[in-house]
Design a protein around this nucleic acid. Structure first.
Lengths: 216, 216, 216, 216
DNA sequence: CATGAATGAGTCTTCATTCAT
DNA sequence: TATGAATGAAGACTCATTCAT
């Protein structure tokens, strides 16, 4: 079953089985890498992973669960990236790095990111089993903790207005998701690399200014 | 046919027919007013409008065209709202009003707004007939003109950094769309009205700060 | 109603109405002039005739009846053509003329001919009202009389084997219809005019030979 | 997939699957065995084959592909029948056998034959995938080779006029198809068996005479 | 009479999921 | 465990015919 990672694979068979799970996710991701990713079928994923369709269901109880695993994997990576940031710089610089790391990951893992965004839709979450709903809640809390501590430092230093966490984060989150939607909804091949870099630079600047500019 | 609005309905029959078109759109909108709106079928719309399925297709050549009409109607309303803003105030105040009007309309017409957002997806636009693609392009230009002139005034007055239109608008647009996604993806009934007002206030403040804070 | 021709149109209104019937048929025929003629809808016919769809049903009680009228019109023309043949020539020459006239008409009136062939299908005839079934029977008899008399002359002169009418006619009819199918099923624009003439010449020769060659 | 015949079914499952394909075709054919065969739906075929509708689409990618497979199967049988003819007899006798075999097969496999005729329609061929268009071209060539060699022998022996292949074959083909149309378009149950045999005898005689009678 | 809006049964096709082997 | 054949509920769209005005 999905997330067998929690158990220790011992035998060769079990190791193979565990590896298989990642292969399915990778296959899915390679197919999700375009704007019509929602049209991708379980058949196609199985074909791409070079396994039978039934096998997919041995690992994931539904297509939605595949989405969930991808989203969770993405959030883990994002958190891991945040952990790599040097927190001993000025807070505005830390936030700039947070934003840069985010954009970089979102663009490097577009398929992941697309799915993650989809997984926030209310109708999706409703369908989801409680187990996964909880996992998403956990992730949410981790983010809150991760970004929250940075913001608190900023508040203490007087760089960031003294506001509740949600007031501070909500604009950043909104801009971020909106920006990614805009990038995805444009045929990427049409935009030159330069334009994309510029886009990110401008957006990042705007985000930092927006964050700092909230009246205390 | 859709957008018969361009012709003047003279006879009773024509008036009825024109009204029917709006009834279909209204029926659709009432069904679209929840996060799983994409699951709504043409049959359901017809049932809701209390007409036959075939009749729907007398007015709209496809389900996509229904979406397009809704989106265009929404954009018209938004532009109309912008026209009502008093431009003789300080630019930052004008922008605040733009943002407030936008949020108000988006929240009053959530179904419209949802569809409008959907209609920006690359895969949707691709399927669309050239006629409608052009209409959307027109709308885009109207917005650019409308907001552009405000920003220019701001630049002249030194309130807004001297930057190309797209640099200035992109953050606002991203935040706006992201914010709406966040609102829709939360089961609205869970948020109290207060929370929503607060949400908008905070976001608006952030947006204005972000806009102003771009380095010239 | 269809075939109002049997009544004498007196008033202007009645004359207009009668003319309208032919206009509908002409509109239909102009649309039937291609291999996918079966896809043509009543809407399209009405549009082409520049009248309302309902009006079509004032003249013809069903789409099938339109087909029937076209087929009958065609058969009338064919019979009229046969009447113009000089019967004072050697019988084989008369038959050659019959065949030539037939091919000429079929090619000049391809849409008519297509419909006529369709109207021979058992499932079509079954759906047809008795009135029209009778009309088709009448036409059949007229043909039998027309060709029959030629063949009888030939038999008397010993040019054509002494065989029942149906034995003699069946091959000709089969070849004719098969040949027309072949012509229609080939994109006409692909065949040069020369090829078509050659085709007809060869087929005609074959038909005469086949007719004569039956053992008495 | 359709035409899995090219692969050797090894396992039981594969054998079952291959058999299923034939069962679908058989079910289709049993429903096609009447003049309104074009009205038969995929649902009906599935019901007749006692399988789900989806299963049909596991074997055939479209209804048209079902038609194509039936037509190809039929052509194969026809060619196989031709191969069984003893070519060491006088050419006119060989041709008579060819004609007889054809009529026999067409009458034994009326549903097949109906579909085959349909599959020659230009609008059908256009819709068809290149793969199947090629298969039909192949079949065409096989026929040309098969009949062509007989005719050449006849020309060498001076029994058949020295004419290009297409001049010789076109009349036969036309008569054949026309004759079959006539048979199908008559409610078969109305004709006694005797009449049909007679029909074939007469037509065959006519065809041979027509072929021989072309002027060199 | 002329009209064209309304109808809704009917068509093909898709796809997540199940289950026997 | 791995497989992939089977399923059948949907879904978008068409079109001959009717009927109120």
């Amino acid at each position: 079953m999905a997330n067998g990672r929690s158990m220790q694979p011992i035998t060769r068979k079990e190791r193979d089985f565990a590896r298989r799970e990642q292969e399915i996710l990778d296959a899915a991701l390679s197919l999700f890498n375009n704007p019509s990713w929602e049209q991708v079928t379980v058949d196609q994923i199985a074909k791409e992973a070079e396994i039978g369709k039934g096998t997919v269901y041995k690992h994931f109880s539904s297509k939605d669960e595949i989405y969930a695993c991808i989203a969770l994997e993405f959030h883990e990576r994002l958190l891991a990236n945040f952990k790599m940031i040097n927190h001993d710089q000025p807070v505005d610089q830390v936030m700039r790095e947070v934003i840069r790391h985010s954009f970089t990951l979102y663009l490097d893992c577009q398929a992941h990111a697309r799915v993650s965004l989809y997984c926030k839709r209310a109708d999706y979450v409703e369908r989801l089993s409680e187990v996964y709903q909880d996992k998403f809640d956990q992730v949410e809390k981790s983010f809150e903790a991760s970004i929250g501590s940075i913001l608190e430092t900023g508040i203490e230093q007087g760089v960031i207005p003294k506001r509740p966490y949600h007031h501070l984060i909500i604009g950043l989150e909104a801009t971020f998701e909106g920006a990614m939607s805009m990038i995805w909804n444009t045929d990427i091949s049409c935009r030159s690399q330069l334009e994309q870099d510029e886009f990110i630079t401008v957006i990042s600047e705007y985000m930092v200014a927006g964050l700092m500019g909230l009246r205390a």
